[in-house]
Computed example of a mutant assay.
Amino acid sequence: MPSDYDVIVVGVGGMGSAACAHLAERGVDVLGLERYGIPHAEGSSHGSTRIIRYAYSEGESYVPLLERAYELWRDLDADHDRDLLTTTGSLTVGPPDEGLVPDARDALDAHGKAYDYLDAAGLEARFPYAVDDDWRAIYQPDGGFLDPEQSIVAHVDRAHANGATIKGREAVTAWREDDSGVTVDTEKGTYTADHLVVAAGAWSPDLCPGLADHLTVERQVMGWFQPTDPAAFTPDAFPVFMVETGGNELYGFPRHDLPGMKVGVHHHRNEETDPDALAEPTREDEAHVRDALTDYIPDAAGETLGLATCLYTNTPDRDFVLGALPNAERVTVAAGFSGHGFKFTSVVGEILADLALDGRTDHPIAGFDPARFD
């Protein structure tokens, strides 16, 4: 029997929506299946803003992917009626000899990206920070933020415009592979395809049991706080930022879309969670984020205006999982983005289309091979 679709994509969040768009643009008959609404606030692709930056402390090998991601974001932005990418510049702040600052500087130097290297006095003269006298900061002008919800909308709109079928509120319950293709069971029906892409975020361990031992789901809390001088924290005046906090990082954004300034502490409590039983923010969460903000950007630490939870899906090495699922030649997986993946959504969609259709990609993803944990 012929397959219902060429490719089925499970998960229509950041990565899955981009995969649907790129596949449909190539003339592929694609079905996207999402367990929640599109977009939604139950997973990893919400909260109004996500940082994008070339000052990449996570490793200079990511920068070529970022260059392509920026190109694709600008292309998508041009077709959408709301801004997806806002350029503010980015700041990376911390001790000069280890951690965020030297790692970001190495990444920028390796790829010839322009930046300003500031001492503590220079930083505090330009922006409302309070840091140790021996600290340093990197200001890189291309940094900024993406609107995650609108990015998903834009990718889904492009997928629809090219003939894709997208279904929300339809959870996948099982899938299986045989010589003729893949079969996907949901709460509402059964579908077949030549290839399956799993981009299910925190639900990837359930759908890809062979990877479950290498994917840890973590609860993360974001907060919105009212600055004492709101005019100093607009996108025109205040860059997105990462600040070293002794093992974790304070990250945040200028005011945008929602009242107050959004901030968080990366891996703030290292708290594993069940994605189907995600706890609401607590006073302890609020205090953890507020304390870090008060230490380094005290003028931003006014009244609490909002708190929200989201999910990280972490790998042991904090690098992505992107490639063929071991022992399933018709299945490609995108998972384990470890709290720093959304900025790559546009290019990951392109990569997933390459892998689903050709079994290979020209993008540098060898370090993300799902088989590396075996």
Rank of each mutant, 00 (worst) to 15 (best):
P254D: 07
L305A: 14
P141N: 05
I365H: 04
V93Y: 04
A366S: 10
H214Q: 14
L65T: 02
H288F: 11
A277H: 10
Q150R: 11
R169I: 08
L108G: 02
G27R: 07
D369H: 01
E303W: 05
D4L: 04
S44Q: 06
A200S: 09
L355K: 02
L146H: 01
P209H: 07
P235G: 14
V333P: 02
P64T: 11
A356W: 06
D374T: 13
H288K: 08
S48I: 08
D132K: 11
G349Q: 05
S338Y: 00
G59M: 11
G306I: 09
V184C: 02
N270V: 09
A125D: 06
D77V: 04
H288L: 14
D81T: 14
L85C: 14
V153C: 15
A120W: 00
L207I: 04
G246A: 07
D179E: 04
R68P: 05
E34T: 14
L146T: 02
E280T: 15
A199T: 04
L66G: 08
V221G: 04
D6E: 10
D236T: 15
V12G: 03
T282P: 10
L85W: 13
R74L: 12
V131Q: 05
A18L: 01
R50P: 06
C20Q: 01
E98C: 10
T245R: 06
S151Y: 00
P275Y: 00
T234G: 15
A353H: 00
R290D: 03
D257P: 09
E218R: 07
Y62I: 15
P205W: 00
E329G: 04
A110C: 05
V30C: 03
D299K: 13
V7T: 02
Y54Q: 10
Y36M: 14
L72F: 12
P230N: 07
G16W: 01
A277P: 05
F342H: 08
P370T: 09
Q150H: 11
D213M: 09
G43T: 11
P39W: 09
Y62H: 15
D116P: 05
A114V: 09
L123G: 08
G189K: 11
F127M: 09
I297M: 12
T332G: 05
D317N: 13
R74E: 12
D319W: 07
G367F: 14
P235A: 14
D358Q: 05
D213S: 12
A237K: 04
L118G: 02
V221Q: 02
H288G: 03
A41R: 15
P96A: 12
T186Q: 07
G181E: 01
P370M: 09
D134I: 11
D147G: 03
D119S: 08
I38Y: 10
Y191M: 03
F127S: 02
V30H: 00
A154T: 01
T216Y: 02
G247F: 07
R283E: 13
H195N: 07
F342C: 08
V28G: 01
P205R: 06
D133Y: 10
